[in-house]
Amino acid sequence: MQNKKIVITGGPGTGKSSVIVNLESQGHYCLHEISRQITLEAQEEGIDQLFLEKPLLFSEKLLEARVNQHKESLHLTKEVIFFDRGIPDVIAYMDYFNTHYPSKFDEACERHEYDKIFLLPPWKEIYTTDNERYESFDQAMSIHEYLKKAYIRYGYNPIEVPTDSIENRRDFILNNLDD
């Protein structure tokens, strides 16, 4: 059985993780964002913000972890699998920070395909910062554009999820899986 691989993405603070947690609470299979874990591991090793201090190393770790998530999804017997961010997110952030990267990043995006991309837009009313999220709201808006461009670059047509309650955003995604 070929499962559907659905990415939920967006700039920082757009409510992605809340929607993912809600989908999961409703019995849907979700693979969670892993960049916070990579950041926390680096902090344990004494590097406060790995992405800022060693952006290529951070991105390589993130690429490897997201490729592994994609590979894991190929062996799951779930009809639909939701991803909190996809492989092209790595490219979008490196482009945003003007970080040069080797061709293996593009190749990973081309080799590991998703079925549908849902893009959550910046939403000032819910935006907050924390120890791992340091971007301003203006930066989040810019990152949103880089994410959209990255997914379009790899042949996707991201579907923008309206700003609304978590439940309505979840329902919007579920109602647009087969379009």
Score class of each variant (00 low, 15 high):
residue 1 M to H: 09
residue 1 M to K: 11
residue 3 N to K: 07
residue 6 I to S: 05
residue 6 I to M: 01
residue 9 T to N: 06
residue 13 G to W: 04
residue 14 T to D: 07
residue 15 G to N: 01
residue 17 S to L: 02
residue 20 I to K: 00
residue 21 V to L: 15
residue 29 Y to M: 08
residue 31 L to H: 06
residue 31 L to K: 01
residue 32 H to G: 06
residue 34 I to W: 09
residue 34 I to N: 11
residue 36 R to N: 11
residue 37 Q to N: 13
residue 40 L to W: 13
residue 43 Q to N: 05
residue 43 Q to S: 08
residue 44 E to S: 08
residue 44 E to I: 14
residue 46 G to T: 04
residue 46 G to K: 08
residue 47 I to Y: 03
residue 52 L to F: 09
residue 54 K to L: 14
residue 60 E to P: 04
residue 60 E to I: 12
residue 65 A to D: 15
residue 76 L to H: 07
residue 79 E to Q: 07
residue 79 E to P: 06
residue 84 D to P: 02
residue 85 R to S: 08
residue 88 P to N: 05
residue 88 P to H: 04
residue 89 D to H: 03
residue 90 V to T: 07
residue 91 I to R: 04
residue 93 Y to F: 07
residue 94 M to P: 05
residue 99 T to V: 13
residue 103 S to I: 15
residue 106 D to I: 04
residue 108 A to P: 00
residue 111 R to K: 15
residue 112 H to Y: 07
residue 118 F to T: 11
residue 118 F to S: 04
residue 120 L to C: 12
residue 123 W to P: 06
residue 128 T to K: 07
residue 129 T to L: 15
residue 130 D to G: 04
residue 131 N to V: 08
residue 131 N to R: 15
residue 132 E to C: 15
residue 137 F to K: 00
residue 137 F to C: 00
residue 138 D to F: 11
residue 140 A to H: 00
residue 147 L to A: 11
residue 149 K to H: 13
residue 156 Y to V: 06
residue 157 N to K: 03
residue 159 I to C: 02
residue 160 E to I: 03
residue 162 P to I: 02
residue 165 S to G: 00
residue 168 N to A: 08
residue 170 R to W: 09
residue 171 D to T: 08
residue 171 D to F: 03
residue 172 F to H: 04
residue 174 L to Q: 07
residue 175 N to Y: 00
residue 176 N to A: 10
